[in-house]
Amino acid sequence: MANEATAPTLYTVAAPPHWHCGRTVTGVMQQYILALLPAAVMAFIYYGFPALRVIGLSCATAVAVEALCCKAMDRPSSVDDFHAVLTGLFLAFLLPAMAPWWLVVVGAAVSIVVGKMLFGGLGGNPLCAPLVGWAILSLSWKTQMDPGAMVLATNLVDPLTQLKYLGVAAANKLSLGDLFIGKQLGALGATQVLALLVGAGYLVSRGLLKLYIPLSFLAGVFLAGLVYYLMDGSVYPSPVFHLLTGSVVLGACFLATDPNSSPVNKAAMVGFGLTAGVMTVIIRVYGMYPDGVPFAILFANLFTPMFDLIRPKPFGAR
């Protein structure tokens, strides 16, 4: 052939499929960060620059700590996949806007080190990484993690502490519409219900968020809330109140759906979402923490290996 005199053309040889949908880890993380921006903007509107301070510090710490971890583990840096930024953003959303700087730094570092890198990085974490950081912070520094104690210069009230300490009558005074647009005191991003739903809707429209877990989570919260409400409406608030307060929406759409710590089969995802949703209400009713969402998700995360055992019969199996 004519080519034999010259060097042969080199082609890429790889196993099929040769097409790809174009979705990459980096791309997905960037889209998630984009989807969280409306909530971040709302947090700025309600809390001002302190909120931005927490978000920035949390993201920066997460990235720096992950880079250091990669160095210590003698492996190529994985910070360019934006997962550290996303983890930092999620953690910031769970913190009060006035959280002291050291709390944010410790939380972000713990999220990355204990939540993710100890298990080998992205793909190995058995629990939702930012929730690990949140859990350690809220067990260690209860006061600093309490928005009611930290954010004083505000007219907003925390619906869940109202419910816990003043009873359902106080909670019922709050307008559900206000709660929906984020007019409630709480973690800086988690309470931006409308903005988070906008972000989640965007991800769903891009095919990056599957609705099995979010819907079953919300259904779990609603159904469990409804059961208590029907048992005694003078002690327990309406199920819609549960849906709109605390970090239910953030948890349902973003934290419970963390890919690594959630199951993958359809039935398993529904069971996982329902479990986390029901646990949320149970913790709110009986637990010592006003908002049960993070612990409920961590609880469901622990059962993910068991949920993964729920799987359909393979093709052709008898």
């Binding site: 979705r23 880890v25 997905v28 080998g120 990085g121 992205l122 793909g123 190995g124 599957k210 890919p259 690594n260 959630s262 199951p263 993958v264 089969n265 995802m269």
Partner: peptide, 9 residues
């Protein structure tokens, strides 16, 4: 050769 992130797609 990234690790599986268990997204379930």
């Amino acid at each position: 050769d990234l690790p599986c992130i268990n997204c379930g797609e």
